[in-house]
Amino acid sequence: MKLSLAGSRSALRRIFSDKLAARSFLLAASLPLLLLLLMAAALLFRTLPIFQFVSPWEFLTGDLWRPSQGEFGLSTFISGTLWVTLLALILAVPPCIFASIFLVEYARRGTLRGILPAIDLLAGIPSVVYGVWGLLVVVPLVPRLGQFLRGVFGDLPFLTSSNPTGFSILAGGIVLAVMISPIIVSITVEVLRTVPQGVREAALAVGATRWQAIKHAVLPNALPGIIAAAVMGLSRAFGETLAVMMVVGNTPAIPRSVFDPGYPLTALIANNYGEMMSIPRYDAALMGAALLLLVVVIIFNVLSAMVLARLGQEVSS
């Protein structure tokens, strides 16, 4: 058959519009990445002035934060963030793994189908709601827990504090643990479901119990994915601001105990952005804190995305 339209005007127009469509979709798709780069560049640009004043090392490790006197050290805030995040992970990861194992390996399919949407719903609750819940429920409980622990065990490292209120990194950790649980459970459930049924059956067929099959056949296969799920939770916890800010006490001192108050980086930025323009270099210091958060969260996300992608490839091959 002859290509009667070749070279004609309408053919050229169609080829052109096809190319145009492809280009514009590419542009739309690369927009998020572009925005991220722009954001990082802007933060970096606004941070740089602080380094004429303090060295990057001093900025990260100094423990004095007196903007009016020109002292900018982030270490108390970094340690506040690390404490709260670590605590949230310790509290959230083991129960989430057990819950996921139950849902995938033991529960009936119907149970899983009923519970997964509820878990996704939990992930969508605004963080201020979690914050209020923390304020009303968790904060009052924390001092009682502290008294109880002291009554039973006496003075223990990391568990003894002179803080009379419940505003503490423990309260922050508990609220955060609840907030990051949905993402950890939903990723872990997905990961466990990618383990082929034949692998379970291989263990069961030689007389293993369900738990033995899970422990020796399923979990080793799923481990990288479970770690990635925990890292996803970690980066979520790292960046969470409002709910933590409401319960953590916001006292700029390095915590010595889980019952001490703390002051995470995110809370620092949120509490002070209003006055940052009135003090020289204050804005640059806060931008530096934001840049630090951004970089750490990007690193965590990229790492876990890489692990999950590789896991997906292995399963499909």
């Binding site: 059956e201 067929a205 007389g207 020796h216 056949a217 296969n221």
Partner: peptide, 26 residues
């Protein structure tokens, strides 16, 4: 009553341990 599946599904361990697995759990 043992079963050989349609495809070889391996346990995530060494050659030796794949065979030893059943012995050890018993």
């Amino acid at each position: 009553i043992g079963l050989i599946a349609q495809r070889p599904y391996l346990l995530p361990m060494s050659i030796f341990d794949n065979v030893a697995f059943g012995l050890r759990i018993h």
